[in-house]
Simulated scan of single mutants.
Amino acid sequence: MPGLLSYRAINTLDAMIGHRSPRYREFGWAAARLDDLANWLPARLTVLSTAIATGSTSGARHVLTVVARDAPAHPSPNAGPVEAAFAAALGVSLGGSNTYDGVVEDRGRLGDGPAVTVADLGLAVHLERSIGLISLGLIVVARGVVARRRSRRSRRAN
């Protein structure tokens, strides 16, 4: 629970003051970097889960190739890999220019396919559900490994 609360506080702090504005220039950068650090591993696990969710070796390889190629074009070290993975898995392209507070920001082109349409929504929901199940499986396995190690250590100590 402490980890969950800490993560939520970091994420909220970044959302509130992590933007580059004159008011938060001296402190906002720290909140943004801390959020980047807290999300580094989850973003990479999401990329791997997305690759697995394609259901094939060639699909997984394609996801990893697109992430390696396109993610650096995105300004976020964590959103870039995740968005590139989704674009590859869905066979679409994401990214482009966005406007934030009147400032145009290029987020790079992620993926090789056509732009997203409403018709892609069903496949995106299916992908998200598959990733959720894969993530749940990884959590259960990790929890089992940790429990087994603790059990072995307690037996050795006794």
Rank of each mutant, 00 (worst) to 15 (best):
F86M: 14
L94W: 07
L138N: 11
L90Q: 09
A85K: 11
G122K: 06
R150V: 11
F86I: 11
N78I: 09
G102T: 05
V66I: 14
A89T: 04
L127I: 09
A68H: 10
L133D: 04
V92S: 03
R153N: 08
V67Q: 03
A147D: 15
A147M: 07
V145H: 12
S130T: 14
G113I: 07
A119Y: 08
V82K: 13
V146S: 13
V92G: 00
L127H: 02
L94E: 11
R152S: 05
H74K: 03
L136D: 06
A71T: 06
I139M: 14
V118L: 15
P75Q: 07
I139L: 14
D106R: 10
A147S: 14
R69N: 02
P77T: 01
R148V: 01
V140E: 08
G108T: 10
A73C: 02
G91N: 06
V141E: 03
G95Q: 13
N78K: 00
A79F: 02
R109E: 03
A147N: 06
R69Q: 12
R129E: 08
G132L: 07
G132S: 10
A87W: 11
L138Q: 10
S130G: 15
V145S: 09
V141A: 05
D106K: 09
V125N: 10
A124V: 02
L123P: 01
G108C: 10
A87L: 09
V92K: 02
H126P: 03
V103Y: 01
L127C: 09
G111V: 04
L123N: 15
R129D: 04
L138T: 00
R152T: 07
A68P: 01
